[in-house]
Design a protein around this nucleic acid. Sequence first.
DNA 1: CATGATCCATACGTAAATGTATAAAGACCT
DNA 2: AGGTCTTTATACATTTACGTATGGATCATG
Lengths: 296, 296
Amino acid sequence: MDHAKTTPDWTHLRAFLSTAETGSLSAAARALCLTQPTLSRQVAALEDQLGVMLFERVGRRLDLTDAGRELLPHARDMGLAAERVALSASGQRSEISGQVRITASDITAAMFLPSVVATLRKIAPQLTIDVIASNDIQDLMRREADIAIRHQRPDQPDLVARLVLDAVGHFYAAKSYLDKRGRPTSRADLASHDWVSFGDANRMAEYLVAMDIPLTVDVFKSSSENGLVSWELARAGLGICPMDDYVAASAPDMEAVMHDDLHVTFPIWLVTHREIHTSPRIRLVYDLLAEAIAAR
Amino acid sequence: MDHAKTTPDWTHLRAFLSTAETGSLSAAARALCLTQPTLSRQVAALEDQLGVMLFERVGRRLDLTDAGRELLPHARDMGLAAERVALSASGQRSEISGQVRITASDITAAMFLPSVVATLRKIAPQLTIDVIASNDIQDLMRREADIAIRHQRPDQPDLVARLVLDAVGHFYAAKSYLDKRGRPTSRADLASHDWVSFGDANRMAEYLVAMDIPLTVDVFKSSSENGLVSWELARAGLGICPMDDYVAASAPDMEAVMHDDLHVTFPIWLVTHREIHTSPRIRLVYDLLAEAIAAR
DNA sequence: CATGATCCATACGTAAATGTATAAAGACCT
DNA sequence: AGGTCTTTATACATTTACGTATGGATCATG
C-alpha cells in the first residue's frame, strides 16, 4: 500500500490539532511557540494535501467543517499518544532513579495512591516510591518526605504548594444503618443520629456546628484518629461520617445523607520543597500526581 | 503544565517509528521518501530532546534500547491515529460520493461485508454501498458491480486482481450430529458420514476425492446452491460441510472434523476493473476491503 | 459611528532543515 | 583474505520552512 505518500505531514497534523483545540491560528501559535503565519501555512498545506477543507473561514473566525470535525478525534489520539511518548521518555531517563517519598492522609494513601504508584512504576521503572501515611503536615519540613498531599495550604514560605483540586465530599452512613434509624431530611434530624468522629470529637463538633448542623459532642458514639478506621466504623453501621466522594464511590454499601442539600468541599494541595526545581525525578512524580488528582 | 516545551517534534517521532519498524535508518528513509542523513539527524534530535538513547549503535546495526522499546508502542499508536486521519480525510473528500457496488459470495456478503460496510459508511458518509450476493464471477464483466471478492483468479486480462489472503477452512459438522454419529478419525471414516453439498454434488465429490477423501456422490444427503443455506443445513445436523474458519468461528455449535489433519485453503481475490486507477471512490473501497480482509 | 483590538493572509529576508557527496566501518560472499 | 554491498555519520550547497512586517477584515467598545 502506498499510504506513505498519502500520509500527511505529522507536523501539519499537530498544527491542525492545536488550531482546532484552541479555536484560532493565533492561539495555536502561542501554544506551540510558533507564529501565526506558520500555523496558517501548515493548516493550509494539510488541507491541500488531504484535499479537504478543515476550517471554514468566516470573518476572522475559524470554524471546523464537518470533515474537520470527523478528523479531530483521530488527531486527538495522536496528541495523546505523543504525550505518552514524552512522559514515558522522561521516566526512562537515567536521572529518574532513586527514591521518592510521598506523604498523604491514610485514606488518600490507601484509596488513591496505589493506582498512581502503579503507573509511576510502569513509567519510571528505576524509581522507588515510598508512601508515608500520616496526617502530620510537618513531615515535609523535617525532610521525611519529598511530596505531600494535604488538605490545607501550608504556611511555611519555603515550600512549593499548588492547589490541584477542590474535592467534594458528603456525609455517609451505611445503608443498613439508615434502614434501621431512618434517613434524615433536615439539619435538625442530624442531631438525633449517631456520628463517627474523624480525630478529636470536640474539634469535629465545632466544625459541624459551624456548618449549621446543630449537634453536640455526645452524638459521637465512636471515633478514631485513623481515617480508614473511622470509615470502617461507619461502614459497620456505627453512624454518620464525612467522606470524600471519590473514596465513598468505591463503597456501594454506603449512602450519602441529604445528598443534594449537604456537602463539604476541601482543597487538595500538592506540596513539595524547592528541590523540585532541580530534581527531575521529583518533578516527574509531582507532575504525575497533579495530573492524576485533577483527572480523578 | 509546560508540556508544550517537552513535547517532542512530531516529525521526529515519525522518524523514530519508521526507523524502529523498518530496522534501519536507510530503510526508514526509503519508506518515508526522505534520505538517510535526514533520518539520522531526526532520530538524533529526538534522542537529544528526550534525553534518552533510543537506539544502540552496534556496528552498522541499530538495536532498540529498553527505553526505545518502551516508547515504541506509543509511537505506533500515533502512527495508527495518523493513518486514521488520512483514511478519514480521503473519505470526506467531495469526489468520494455516489455508489459502489461490491459483489461477493452469499456467505461473504452476509458474514463479513456488513461490518466493513459499516466502517465504510462511517468513513465516507456520502458513499452508497450496494452489496450484491452472487457466485457468478461474470458480474464484473457485465459491469453489474465495481468490486468483486472471489475465490479464484479471474482470467479476463482487463481486470485488476489482487490476491489478498489465503484463507483456511475446515470440514464442519454440528456437535449434536457428531455426538450421535461419532467423530471420524480417519479419511476412510468420512465416507460413512452424511455430507451437505455446496452447489452441484458431483463437482463437490470430485473435489473431495482429489483431496484423498474416498467418498462417493451418494453421501450427499442434502445440498443447496446457496452457501448460507448449505451452512444452515449442516448446523441443523444434516452432515459435514466445508467452511471458512472465519465464518465458522461465529457458530459455536459447529465443530471441525479431524481439525489437525484435514483442512482446505482457498485464495481470496479482490477484483475490479481498470477504472480503479481513475476513480477515487472505488480506490478507497478497494483499499479498505483489502485491509479488512487481510486483517480479518 | 469611529476607534482600537484581534485575527487571518500575503510578501520578503533569514534561519533551519534537507539532499548530495563522501568517508569509515561492519557483514557477507567468494 | 579480499572484494562488495551494506550500513551510519559528517561536510557542504541548496531548498524549504520559518519569523517579521504589513494590509485587509471583523468584532467589540466608547
